[in-house]
Design a binder for these strands. Structure first.
Lengths: 151, 151
DNA sequence: TAATAATCCTTGCGTCCGGAAGTATATCGG
DNA sequence: CCGATATACTTCCGGACGCAAGGATTATTA
C-alpha cells in the first residue's frame, strides 16, 4: 500500500465531498423552491441550451443518467408547468423537453439561492484564488463532457 | 446573473465530476471485484478503523447515508463473509460491523485496482502538482468530516 | 430508585433509479 | 424501393435509498 498517493486521495475526497454537499444542500433547496438537486441541474441545463430545449437523450448524457430517468423526471415538471413537451418536425422520434416561461422564472430563483449557498460554502477560510483554482482543476473533468455550464 | 462566479461554477463542476466518475468507475469495479462503489467505500472505512470495526451509526455518518441503508448494505456483505456482526459487551444496543479476514484481502485487492484507476484518471494532462493541489483543496471539505481517509 | 429522555438498530413504506424489452421512426445498403 | 440496422423514447421490473415508526437498551434526572 503506497504511503502517499495523491490521485487516490483526491478521488476519495471528491466522492466524499460530493456526498456531503448533496446531503447539505438538498434539504434547503427542496424546502425553498420545491426542487430536488437533480431537478435543479435538469432545469439548469435547459436554461443554458439554445431555444431553452434539449432532446431527452442529450439531457440524459449531460446529467449522466439513463433515458428512463429523464422520462420520469420530466413528468412532474410538466405537470407543474415548468417544462413542456415539443416535437421535432424533422424527426418524429424526438420529444424535446422545453423550458416554459414559468419554468424560466422558477429556475432563475432557484439558481439565485444556489449561488448564495455556494458563496456561503466557501466563506470560511477560502481565498478567491483557492476557489478559482478548485473550479479550474475540476473544470478539467467537466470540460470534456457535454453540457458544461461555463456561463 | 453574475458574469463570473467561481464558487457557483466550482460547486456545479464538483457535482458533475462526481456523477461522471461514478458512472465511469462503477461498471469496472463491479465486474472485477463484485463490489459496488458504495460497498468499496463501506469496506474501506472498516479497513481504516481501529480493530477493523465500526458501529453502524458511525458508518452511516462517515458515508453520509442513513442507518437503514447501513443495515441493508451489511446483510449481503455478511452473507458473502466479508464482514461479521459483533456485539459490544458494555452496550447491548450497538452491533459492530467487523471486517473478516477474507474481507481484508478482498478490500485490499479492490483498493489496488481503485488506486490504479485513480492514477489512470490523471494520466493525461495532469502534473503531480495539479493532483496534489486538487487533493488538498478537496481536503478542506473532508477534513471537517468524520472518517477522513488521509492514509 | 423510578420515570423520562436519549441512543442504536431494524422494519415497513413510498420514491427514485438503471437495465432490458418493446414501440415507433429514421437511416443505410443492396 | 425494401429489408436490416440504428436511434429516440417509454414501460416494466427489480434493486437501493431515506424517512418514520417501533423495539430494545442505556443515560439522565428528580
Amino acid at each position: 500500500m503506497p504511503k502517499d498517493d495523491p490521485a487516490f486521495s483526491a478521488l476519495l475526497r471528491l466522492f466524499r465531498s460530493a456526498a456531503w454537499l448533496d446531503a447539505r444542500f438538498s434539504p434547503e433547496l427542496g424546502s425553498v423552491h420545491g426542487l430536488a438537486l437533480n431537478e435543479l441541474l435538469f432545469l439548469l441545463q435547459l436554461s443554458r441550451a439554445p431555444l431553452q430545449r434539449l432532446r431527452r437523450v442529450d439531457l440524459a448524457n449531460r446529467l449522466h443518467t439513463s433515458q428512463s430517468t429523464i422520462t420520469r423526471m420530466a413528468l412532474p415538471l410538466e405537470k407543474s408547468g415548468l417544462v413542456k413537451r415539443e416535437a421535432d418536425p424533422r424527426d418524429a422520434r424526438v420529444a424535446y423537453v422545453t423550458l416554459t416561461r414559468t419554468g424560466r422564472t422558477r429556475i432563475a430563483e432557484a439558481e439565485a439561492t444556489f449561488r448564495r449557498m455556494a458563496t456561503d460554502l466557501f466563506r470560511a477560510g477560502w481565498s478567491d484564488r483557492d476557489i478559482a483554482q478548485l473550479s479550474s482543476l475540476l473544470g478539467r473533468f467537466t470540460a470534456i463532457l457535454p453540457g458544461d455550464i461555463t456561463e
